[in-house]
Design a protein around this nucleic acid. Structure first.
Lengths: 167, 167
DNA sequence: GGTTAATCGTCTTGCTCAAGATGATCTTTG
DNA sequence: CAAAGATCATCTTGAGCAAGACGATTAACC
């Protein structure tokens, strides 16, 4: 490593930190791509889930890892934009089943295209032969070892940077 | 369709979301590994940077992407634990140069070992031949295309909807 | 040498997020 | 048929984080 030519970042060997950089980069690119459509990343995620599954609000929150209270206001916004409707489940009037409107279906299709374009633009910086294997590895790590672990439990008992100053 | 056997997660094709899962997983494993040492992830990151570079607080915050105000309290905690000392720069008495104490040097070495162990335990779930290429790809994505972009500017003009996170 | 501008670190304020409490509805059981 | 327990969605409260304001110190310029 000739640090004189390319000064190595002191955290370049910290995989956890590097992953955070990558995630922030993808998220930012995605946010920029979605902004013209009037969508945030979270809204796009929710719309994406709704386009593939028919679930209650609670299940939606668990799938997308969005907190209850945040989910309420986010769906409020989506409803106001005319992209989703909250319909009461006929079998159980406690549960609300959000579903895409026609405009919502069109919007999520456009958002998928915009997000995918931004994503592949970033991925072009990775050699083509490694690209697919990289995505496979990410999928393995995200869905494999953690599937039965904390990541898919609704409440994470250890939040990430929090110091236990519980009094 | 064998979705009954392995029901595909509705966000399994969302790379951004998958990266977040992976990052959370690594961070959680790291937090668990560091807890017995009395360190948080953020503290470990700061100690790690201090073990490799000699910088002012401002530079430290920029490198580790820790906000000024958070940095103050975090270094306060590290100082109280006797791991770092704040010494005034003799050339410019405005700047404080945090540096590791002897105990801090020992602590960061132990923390590095613990964190690396937790990390490689997770990486074992990825096939060995893909593992190295995965890390290379992460490093490329984190340090390459974004180096001149937003990731290394001190103030990100577009906050991400703000997650959790993490925590 | 004195005055002005700039920079560093700390302190304070607004904002977002997550956990607990509340109200409404359904299911079960006698 | 009525009442108790359980579940869903919403509302409210407390905590952490980031941006801006402030005091302290230094450098630049006349």
């Amino acid at each position: 490593m000739d640090e004189s030519v390319a000064p190595q970042h002191p955290l370049a060997s910290d995989l956890d930190w590097l992953l955070n950089r990558v995630w922030l980069g993808f998220g930012e690119a995605r946010a920029l791509a979605l902004a013209p459509l009037g969508l945030t990343v979270r809204e796009h995620v929710l719309l994406s889930v709704l386009s593939r599954t028919d679930v209650s609000q609670l299940e939606l929150g668990a799938l997308a890892r969005v907190d209850k209270s945040v989910l309420t206001t986010t769906i409020d916004a989506l409803e106001e934009k005319g992209l989703v409707t909250r319909e009461a489940d006929p079998n159980d009037r406690r549960v609300r089943r959000p579903s895409l409107t026609a405009a919502g279906t069109r919007k999520v299709a456009a958002a998928n295209i915009a997000a995918a374009a931004a994503q592949s633009e970033l991925l072009e910086h990775v050699p083509a032969d490694i690209r697919e294997r990289f995505i496979d590895a990410v999928r393995d790590l995200a869905l494999g070892p953690f599937a039965s672990s904390v990541l898919f439990s609704q409440t994470a008992e250890l939040s990430r940077g929090r110091r236990s100053t519980s009094t």
